[in-house]
Design a protein around this nucleic acid. Structure first.
Lengths: 253, 253
DNA sequence: CGATTGCTTGAGTGTCATCAACTAGAGTGG
DNA sequence: CCACTCTAGTTGATGACACTCAAGCAATCG
C-alpha cells in the first residue's frame, strides 16, 4: 500500500497525504474516487506546524487559500473598531478555515493557533479549478459552506436567545460532538482555549464562564480540572441546551 | 431589444428574465456573459407571488431549490424545541434564500413572506450542473455563500457584544445599506417586519425595540412613523454602531 | 361595533457585567 | 533556590441594563 512519494513536489519531509490521513473521511476528500483524491493531493501543501499563538493569516490580508486543520486548534477573530478582539470560531482537526475570505478576496478575520497546530493549505484558485473537473468535490465544497452557514445560524440563536447556563452547556456539548465525530471521547476532553476566549466567543464575561462551570460541577453535571473537562451527566446537559443544535442533530454521514 | 419569449418553457405570463431584470447586477448573473445569462435563465422558474404570511418552504422539507427575491421581503426562521420562533434572517430583493439547505439536503429553516413577495426559483441541481460549465457562475456562487458566512459572523458579533442601542442602530443601518445598494433611498424606507420580528431577530424584547426607537427619535437620530423610518443623523448612527459591518464596509462591486 | 393585533409606556425585578481581591501556577532572574 | 512578576482562574459584592408583567392606545378586521 506504499504510496509513491517520488514526485511529491513539496520539499518537506511531511509525507502525509489525503490517502493516509485519518481525517479524510471528514475533510474535503469525502466521497472522492481514489484518483480524484490524488489530484486533490497534488494541490495541497502541508505546512510546518504553527506554535501556540502563531498567526496563520491576518484580517485584511489577501485571500488565497483555505486551510484544513490536521492537528491542534485554531481560533478566528476580528479586531473591532474599538480595538477589542471578537472571536468568531474555533476550528478542530478536519475543519476548514478561511472560507469567509472568498467573497471580498481578503480574510475578514485573523486565524491564530491555540496550541501547536498543523494545517493543510489548499490554494483556493486551484481548488476551484479542480472542482470544475470533479463534480463531487464541488458538491462537497458547497456542502461545507452550507454547513458553515447552518452552524453560524445556530450560533446566532445561541447568542440571541440563551442565558449563560445554556450558552456554556451548548458550547461544551458542541465540542463534545466534534470530538466524538473524530473518534475521540465525547465525555472527556481538554479545552484548548482559555476561559477568557470561551467567554469572548459566547458573549459572556470570564467570571460568568467560571461561575457557570463551577456550578455545573457542584451539580454533578461535569467535572472540571483546569482545562480538562468530563461530562458526567450528558442527558441533563442536553436537557439544559434544549433547542440547540437543530442543524447538528440531523447528523450527516 | 425585444427578447424572444417564444421558447419560454414556463407556462406563466411572468415574462421577466434575468436580462431585463433590474436586479441582475446584484444577483447571480453578475459578471456572466450574455449567452451564459441565457443558460441560467433557462433553469429559473418565476413563481406566482406569495401573499403576506405565505410560506415559501418549510423547515425540514427536502431541499431542491434556492430562491432569489425579486420583490418584497422574506424572513427565515426556525422553531426551537421549546416551540418558539427564532428568526435567522430577512431577505430583500436580489438576495438568495435557501443556501443553508445544501448540506443536509433539507431546509433547516422555514421561509415566510413578510409582504407580497415574488421570487425566482432556482433548482439547485441544475444550478450546480450549470456552474460546472460556467466557471464565473461557480465563482459567483462561492462568493455569495462566502458573503453569507461573513454576514452571519457580523451578526454573531452584534448579538454577542452589543447593547440594545447598538443592535437597533446596526439593524437600521444594515437595512439602509441594502436599500441603497438596490438604488433606493438610504435614509428613508419602510420596515416590512414588525417590532416583534425585529426584537426576535436582534435578541431583544419587543418593548426594548420600541423604547430604543422612541429614544432615537427623541434624540433626533431618526424619525419614526409606524413602519416608516427616516434616518436623520446618519453620522451619529454610524458612530453608535461603532465596530459593526467590517465585512459590509469593504463594499463589493 | 367589539375584538384582535401591534405598538408604546411605566414599574419592578433578575441576570449578568463590572470592579475588586485573592489563589495558584509558570516563567524569570538574581 | 527563592523572591518576583505575570497570567489564568476563581470568588464575592454591587449595580446596570434589559426582561417581564401590566396597562393603555391606535388601527385593523370580522
Amino acid at each position: 500500500m506504499a504510496i509513491s512519494n517520488s514526485n511529491n513536489r513539496f520539499s518537506s519531509k511531511l509525507t502525509s497525504q489525503c490517502q493516509n490521513c485519518s481525517l479524510s473521511a471528514l475533510c474535503l476528500p469525502i466521497a472522492l474516487a481514489d484518483e480524484d483524491v490524488n489530484r486533490l493531493d497534488q494541490i495541497i501543501e502541508r505546512k510546518r506546524p504553527l506554535k501556540k499563538g502563531e498567526i496563520l493569516f491576518h484580517q485584511g490580508e489577501e485571500f488565497d487559500s483555505v486551510f484544513a486543520v490536521r492537528t491542534g486548534t485554531l481560533k478566528t477573530y476580528n479586531i473591532t473598531n474599538s480595538g477589542e478582539e471578537q472571536i468568531t470560531g474555533f476550528y478542530c482537526p478536519s475543519e476548514l478555515v478561511g472560507l469567509s475570505g472568498i467573497d471580498e478576496n481578503h480574510y475578514p478575520v485573523s486565524a491564530k493557533a491555540l496550541e501547536t497546530t498543523t494545517v493543510c493549505e489548499i490554494p483556493f484558485a486551484h481548488l476551484e479549478q479542480l472542482s470544475s473537473q470533479i463534480p463531487s468535490l464541488k458538491h462537497q465544497l458547497f456542502r461545507l459552506m452550507s454547513r458553515k452557514i447552518c452552524d453560524d445560524q445556530q450560533m446566532m440563536v445561541l447568542l440571541g436567545k440563551k442565558n449563560a447556563d445554556e450558552k456554556v452547556a451548548s458550547f461544551l456539548l458542541n465540542l463534545s460532538h466534534r470530538f466524538k465525530k473524530r473518534g475521540y471521547s465525547a465525555t472527556a476532553f481538554r479545552l484548548s482555549m482559555s476561559r477568557g476566549e470561551i467567554g469572548n466567543y459566547l458573549g459572556l464575561a470570564v467570571e460568568t464562564v467560571s461561575r457557570v462551570m463551577t456550578r455545573f460541577q457542584k451539580n454533578g453535571l461535569i467535572d472540571v480540572d483546569g482545562k480538562e473537562i468530563s461530562i458526567i451527566n450528558l442527558p441533563e446537559m442536553e436537557k439544559l441546551v434544549g433547542s440547540a443544535g437543530e442543524c447538528a442533530t440531523i447528523e450527516h454521514v
